[in-house]
Write a protein that binds this DNA or RNA. Structure first.
Lengths: 211, 211
DNA sequence: GTCTATAATGTGATAGAC
DNA sequence: GTCTATCACATTATAGAC
């Protein structure tokens, strides 16, 4: 990929700006600047801000969450799959920390583009994660591998545990600063913290559902 | 309160619009319409959109999270306090479902108004929740009431479990629709689901940390 | 395809009458 | 204090030359 096309440059810049600033906060000028071209080109390639946004949302959603269902391979034990999921899901979010909040915000705008994309992705198999998770969980419940839990509630809990820190990071870092100051600690080592987070989530869940 | 003042009407409308549309999505015209007055009055009372936003953020943040620390009363057992917290925190969010995402989004805008308000509230005692939670948790750990856990990680987990569903509700309702259709279920009873959520969270945590 | 210049619109803010 | 009318500016979108 020696020569990246103008269209690709625009899309790449648009992903950055839309995911970081949101639908309303994003400005066409900033996207143009980041792509190294001018505003007119954005409209030449994508007609309008709205159409560009739709492309960005669909691509971001599918690329981020499209492949994760393979973690729930029926041939490995549920507990191990869960551990893998926590590990890989958090790694993915950590590499794209703005994306969960971006998707949540756009889905919250009510019936419209984002919700339509989600529904289509659920139907056409581009977003198999929830069903793969629920199927493996139901099998583990049937086989009495784990304590009885409500499948939907449990799924929300696992995903929430993985995602929430990244969404609310500014809130927690400020609380940490207060705590660390009180403890005369060595400050905040973020990579170490992320690894500890994985372990804390798995420990909580594992002990929460083991028989 | 027979006669609500114009300033109060504006603030009430501004809270609604800002929390639902965000800082950039909110329009002064919509706030004016909702308050039943015209745009000029907004500037007469608050000078600028920015100043009005600051008032709204501070008020919303303190009113929503300012009083919750009293749940962690040292005289009651930690497990019971945790159960109360889950119950009351979720009730509060359920009554103001847009507020967590609003606060998270504004804190994510980087150093600025929202972060400043948070830091002040942490210092001046308007936001005692994190410290109250951590103190009670540390005591429970010292007394060997619960399994050994990392206090900060555990706090994030509890809050995330309570908040995440409300933040990502549009995502999950769409998944539910798919699941319920497959199961020929009677559809989605939201109030019942919220009560089940409280129970699911407490069960997971309780089993996750009990000795 | 790419650019500059400009139109068209939306929105925050103000002036001035009452 | 409240209103209408208007300004000033930012931003999306287009026209037209190269």
């Amino acid at each position: 990929m020696v020569n990246i096309s103008t269209e690709e440059k625009i899309l790449k810049a648009a992903v950055e700006v839309f995911t970081q600033k949101g639908r309303h906060g994003a400005k066409m000028q900033e996207i143009a600047d980041k792509a190294g071209i001018n505003k007119a080109m954005l409209h030449y390639y994508f007609r309008s801000k709205e159409k560009l946004y739709v492309k960005v949302f669909r691509e971001v959603f599918v690329k981020t969450f499209g492949g994760l269902h393979i973690i729930f391979d029926p041939d490995i034990p549920f507990t191990k799959a869960l551990e893998n999921f926590i590990d890989q899901y958090i790694d993915k979010i950590d590499k794209n920390p703005h994306i969960p909040l971006f998707i949540i915000n756009e889905l919250g705008e009510g019936a419209g583009t984002a919700v339509t994309v989600l529904q289509e992705a659920l139907k056409n198999g581009e977003f198999k994660l929830p069903m793969a998770f629920l199927q493996m969980l139901n099998k583990a419940l049937e086989n009495n591998e784990i304590r009885k839990v409500d499948p939907l509630q449990f799924m929300i809990s696992v995903i929430g545990l993985c995602v929430y820190y990244f969404i609310a990071e500014p809130l927690f870092t400020n609380v940490f600063m207060l705590v660390y100051k009180m403890e005369n600690s060595g400050g905040f080592d973020r990579p170490k913290f992320i690894e500890q987070r994985k372990k804390a989530i798995f420990d909580l869940i594992y002990n929460g559902i083991k028989k």
